[in-house]
Design a protein around this nucleic acid. Sequence first.
DNA 1: CGAACCTTTGAGTTA
DNA 2: CAAAGGTTCG
Length: 876
Amino acid sequence: MTEPSKLPHHGVPEHQPAAGGIAARARAAAGPQYLTGLNPEQREAVVSLDGPVLVLAGAGTGKTRVLTTRIAHILSQGRARPHEILSVTFTNKAAREMKLRLGQMLGQAVEGMPWLGTFHSIGGRILRIHAELVQLKSNFTVLDVDDQVRLLKQLLQAENIDDKRWPARMLAGLIDGWKNRGLTPAQVPAGEAAVFGNGKGGKLYASYQERLKILNAADFGDLLLENIRLFREHPDVLRQYQNRFKFILVDEYQDTNVAQYLWLRLLSQAPSRAGVPLSAIIPGATDTAVVAENAASPVIPGHAEGVNTEGRDGEGSSPASGSGPPDHPGMTSPPQAPLKNICCVGDDDQSIYGWRGAEVDNILRFDHDFPGAKVIRLERNYRSTGHILAAASHLIAHNEGRLGKTLRTEDVDGEKVTVTGSWDSEEEARAIGEEIEDLQRSGENLNEIAILVRASFQMREFEDRFVTLGLSYRVIGGPRFYERAEIRDALAYLRVINSPADDLAFERIVNVPKRGLGDATVQMLHDHARKRRIPLFEAARAVVETDELKPKARGSLRELILHFDRWRARREVTSHTELAEIVLDESGYTDMWQKDRSADAAGRLDNLKELVRSMEEFENLQGFLEHISLVMDRDGGPDEEAVSLMTLHSAKGLEFDNVFLPGWEEGLFPSQRTLDEQGRAGLEEERRLAHVGLTRARRRAKLYFATNRRIHGTWSTTIPSRFLDELPSPNVEITESKGGSGWGGSGGYGASRFDNVESFGSSYTTPGWQRAQANRAKNRGGGGQARGGFDEAQSSYGSSRGETGGFARNKRGPMVIEGELVAKSTGTVSEFSLDDRVFHQKFGYGHVVKVDGNKLTIAFEKAGEKKVVDSFVERV
DNA sequence: CGAACCTTTGAGTTA
DNA sequence: CAAAGGTTCG
């Protein structure tokens, strides 16, 4: 199956010379030049072309280099031509990066890599080619979350379901989850489908899919799910792609979900025997096989469970089969047909998308799914200095569900990882701001500085701070360009022009700008459309001919229709960019923002201009709309030097000399919600996220925690993250908060949290934290359930999640926790007495009016009466 | 119909 | 605290 480039019918002549040239060059050299400079493991990963290969590539071990070199190797060996290689990534960024690096390596030949892209873009591409086979037209629209939710809302109304009790957003989430698991409406387990809307969940999913077809639309999940359906229902089409792709490469395999796995599996089977029935796997067998690292095939013979690649009838019946793994319907056993040369690269320690349906299992189970797979570990890290790598490795070693790798570096130890405590999030931002200014003064490039946060709401404080400091920064991955209201409005106009059946788009702009066409009118159009089974736009056209509408509404609706007719006619004779300008102008949309007095109106107009400008890169309107929803991420940013600000999630794959990691507090990081929802697995995923954060740093990693943070607008007291405890003390240094206004306790919190308190000096003696530390150590490793001992720290700590998790709202933990913790842990009476004059960092001067253990009630001169813990005030 | 005002609820990560 | 949803009034 691996015969060299004698490929009869798929010849694409113009690529031939390029590939031939490379091959020639490669032959001329003594050994392929691109292999020099690779370490032995990397080299093996590059040259092991035949059969399935799994490359376990730790952070900073040269993963992208291996992938791109492997492609170069395949091409130069003449094993396949560029269009015969399927190479999938998760993000457009990663795809771009690979194209870039390939280009550098190969010269111009990259142009011929049409199948290098994200799962979604490649899935979408295939789907457009065969759209009619899945009841779509090739100009189908890709809906975003917002459209999805609006559509679902309509369906809920139609079913008379109270959308307060059963929010459309929740249903969207469920459907998304099902699609991620490769489940069509018929395949969703009945019990699960019934959870929503008094048992109507499954029905709603089915009617949602129907509506999508009518609207000629697909959502994100469909780009893959419908692809799988296409392959299952049309084996001839599948075979065509199996034939085409001689090699498959997958980046970030640990992030694949079930649907992506199934998709890869279908494509990775050799074409000759497609259609051979495949047996189902036994659920338990897979897991044990992995844990035991047993390479022997765990397939249990005799369990042909009726899932087959022809798939025609598999849809309805498979969920019923009792022995099928509930989460993996249609999951097939190792196929009997030979497998394509598939190479998956990933790192189980960087799997951070479990909440999005990613199955770490996919990577843990690889050698079962692809028998005979060669597993190659890349463990030499080329990125970080010794202390950073040691800290990250030690931290991640606390996870149990991992394949286990030991990263090593030959770099110097460098600077220790620092941990800094501050009074509140403002001070945290101030401290980081100052450190960045210091770095800048010492000659660091701002582009080499990043702040990585757990949750995006943390970014605001930094932005505020940087604006006052005049420090230039850029937010990476924030609200995407095309998610902005003005962009979506503009796109909606274009969508209606392109696809008159796009009711969602029509509805979005029918009254934007205001035309006096309110709910009543829209409702009427809906009724009409439903009765006659026609799109809203056609309904509108019909309705203006009647006198069902008030004259005013009728007039403006007629005008709108005339506009659209004119625009559609113009489409033939005008360039699409010009058309967009005309549309925005004539519709009154630009006017609307020009009249708007609000602060961001100007920015929105700029964005609209930017949109029109970005359209130039595309052939025509259709082409633009096809790509917009998948590919349009902000880039046009000038390359000015700036600090990067982003979430930990969007930092994956990036690296910086200096990395700041604020907000390492219980509840925020690890996120309470993840802990409540996912328990132990959630904790491990959060820990992997911490590991990702640390390993982004080349030379400096700086961690922070604040004692007070505003959540939902009210201040809460927080405790430092358990992850700080899990760092190895020899590689970590506790520092005083810079720009801290002399708040004495700030360093102390961090200090006592480490195993070896002594080594950090005895000045940190806040009793509560020593206690917490001691108890934590006992509790560690026991998981959320173990809480045998009942000393105060442990019990309050434990009860902040677990069984009370559902009531998190009113039982906001931290305050209480800390109150108890500190109050009970100092057996002694407070050193404060009534009427003492005291100073508090936040509230200023006051006097003690009540003493209760070490909780004081203080009448502050400015802030009024407050209850505070005595360690937070000092006598004056 | 739409602006203005009031109430409620909610801040997790994303192709 | 801020956004989103609901209600009221012109």
